[in-house]
């Protein structure tokens, strides 16, 4: 940058110039902000949708567990050994022993008022001892179940064969679809915002040419534009964040009353991440969009 490294006068000029240009081209500025806002609202809303879909998928998946029934002959020592063996599989998260007594109790509970049907079973409980195994990933359930079944001392393994595979298929597709939608929407937002900035730069290419002829460095030409892009991105991002946040909060309130069994993602951290990334994306596209749109016109 030669002798004009960082000059306070120049910095003052940058801010003044960016501000003036925003005012001077107010129509373009307003429509740019509008476009940034709309793109980011769509993106933010789909992000929330995706996060909620993911939460749903996770809760469905976490309910999937393997029940491994033990053979009658397995004693306490063998049982502990077996539990260790199951646990040694890296896919396995928890192994819980369920005695036949406990199994019966649970069964009674699930029968509720009609538990008296089971009364006769008290004396000679036909239910076997079992392990309840949870895997870290739902997708690992079928393979893990198979491995457990092959162990000696295990009579039978159940995990909702067939249903689980279908369920996993569904959740996998939900994830793929979310990822694809998000990628496309992000690209669309980047494209639209960058195009808007390109237009505003194009409208001022004559000005840029004059600046270069007067001996302005590329930096000097570029900086007010980049600053302008950041302001546009930030403004649009803030409005979008506000709209999405308010809309989501009121949706949560409404659902709590009318559909209480639907649990929306409400961890402040997740929501903050989403809103933050919307804002960040707005600013980033604003800055980078200006930067790249200018490249062509700086070659004078």
């Amino acid at each position: 940058m030669g002798c004009t490294a960082v000059n306070f006068n120049t910095i003052k000029y940058f801010f003044r110039e960016a501000f003036h240009s925003l005012i001077r081209n107010s129509w373009l500025s307003i429509s740019s902000v509008g476009i940034v806002t709309v793109s980011l609202i769509i993106l933010g809303a789909s992000l929330l949708l995706v996060v909620n879909a993911e939460k749903l998928a996770q809760s469905v998946e976490s309910s999937v567990e393997i029940t491994a029934f033990l053979e009658e002959s397995v004693g306490t020592v063998d049982r502990d050994e077996l539990a260790e063996k199951i646990k040694s599989n890296p896919e396995v998260d928890t192994v819980e022993f369920v005695s036949k007594e406990q199994a019966l109790r649970e069964m009674k509970e699930s029968f509720g008022e009609r538990a008296d049907i089971l009364e006769s079973l008290e004396e000679s409980n036909p239910l076997p001892d079992a392990f309840r195994v949870k895997t870290k990933q739902a997708a690992a359930v079928p393979a893990t179940a198979q491995k457990i079944e092959e162990m000696t001392g295990i009579e039978q393994v159940r995990y909702g064969q067939g249903v689980v595979e279908k369920l996993l298929n569904v959740t996998r597709w939900v994830r793929y679809a979310s990822l694809a939608t998000l990628t496309m929407l992000t690209l669309a937002a980047v494209f639209i915002i960058a195009t808007t900035i390109r237009m505003s730069v194009f409208a001022r290419r004559r000005e840029i040419g004059i600046m270069k002829i007067l001996g302005a460095t590329n930096w000097f030409v570029r900086f007010p534009f980049v600053l302008e892009g950041i302001v546009l991105g930030l403004t649009g991002g803030l409005i979008a964040v506000l709209v999405v946040d308010l809309a989501y909060l009121s949706l949560m309130d409404k659902l709590k009353i009318s559909l209480p069994f639907i649990q929306l993602v409400s961890e402040p951290r997740t929501i903050l991440y989403i809103l933050g990334s919307m804002l960040g994306l707005g600013v980033l596209i604003g800055a980078l969009g200006s930067w790249f749109s200018l490249r062509k016109f700086l070659k004078v």
Binding site: M1, G2, K212, G215, F220
Partner: peptide
């Protein structure tokens, strides 16, 4: 390239 602006200021 980066010297060009400074040259231009002399013209």
């Amino acid at each position: 390239n980066r010297e060009v602006p400074h040259m231009r200021r002399k013209i």
